[in-house]
Design a protein around this nucleic acid. Sequence first.
DNA 1: ATACTATTTAATATCTACTCCTATTTGTCA
DNA 2: TGACAAATAGGAGTAGATATTAAATAGTAT
Lengths: 157, 157
Amino acid sequence: MPENQHNSSNDNKLVDFEKRCRQHGLKITPQRVAVYKTLVGMDTHPTAEEVCQKVRDEISNISLDTVNRTLHTLSEIGAAFVVEGTGQPRRFDGGLEDHQHFLCMKCGKVIDFHHKPFDNIDIPDELKGQFKILRKTVYLEGLCGMCMHIENKSIIE
Amino acid sequence: MPENQHNSSNDNKLVDFEKRCRQHGLKITPQRVAVYKTLVGMDTHPTAEEVCQKVRDEISNISLDTVNRTLHTLSEIGAAFVVEGTGQPRRFDGGLEDHQHFLCMKCGKVIDFHHKPFDNIDIPDELKGQFKILRKTVYLEGLCGMCMHIENKSIIE
DNA sequence: ATACTATTTAATATCTACTCCTATTTGTCA
DNA sequence: TGACAAATAGGAGTAGATATTAAATAGTAT
Ligand SMILES: [Mn+2]
Ligand SMILES: [Mn+2]
Ligand SMILES: [Zn+2]
Ligand SMILES: [Zn+2]
């Protein structure tokens, strides 16, 4: 978000990342590190394909499969995340009344809710100047009631 | 959002819909009406494929292409909308600092911004009871600076 | 240093969600 | 009742994501 921070800050990130891998029992491979460094160095919210292109500057024969796999690993261990809502088939909504959506990350259901204060969140003037804002959304993600139950059960058993 | 309203309310919606089509110079075809009615009757935020399955109860040989096209038409004329953020290839983000995203609906760029008050929006207790909320996002969509310029130019010329 | 396993490559396959094409049909309006 | 543009069906094509192999490689623990 801010301009690229360099040197010690990036070194720290790398050290943290390697620690995080070890905590999850993951090996520190050059591919993993390169994918991580590349992603952190991009501020464009790239697709796996785009990350792959760039990583190949460093590891010329890295496979797209590895990049894909690694990106998902990164998001599983909290070293990166998937931009909200992307990567699923397009979904439509015929309900035009003011309301918001909750997405269950496990079963993929989109559930309506309505919390009036979310209908008109205030956009700072600074942003209004930069962009033409056509839609503002408060979007919640997590586990729905059903998926919470299932998860609790499987922990107990 | 509320339970299905029937009869006169639905009839009104249909009349409004046909008016809306005419305003946009769109023909009132049986397919268009059937897709609209079907979508409004579903509260599951269906994919095009799911809508298609259901519409076929009424028009057995309607093509998926038509359903897809019609759904997009509906969202263009404001008779439905696309659930936020879905329908694009998955994108990743290595920036873990608190920040929010702006999506340009035209060029597809995802742009970071940070407005502190958005970092901790209050979730009503009612929702906290129903769901396990793992991520809360304020998500803005519209036109980025570049795409605004392009649009303005093409209006002037 | 060695052994064990996780990881990677590379090629292939599958699946889904569109998207494009073209001949045909159909709604609209004069 | 035509004429004409808009819309549709149906099939083919594309892109993204994921899975499956198998064989080679490389990190890690002892
Ligand atoms: Mn909804
Ligand atoms: Mn970001
Ligand atoms: Zn769920
Ligand atoms: Zn743009």
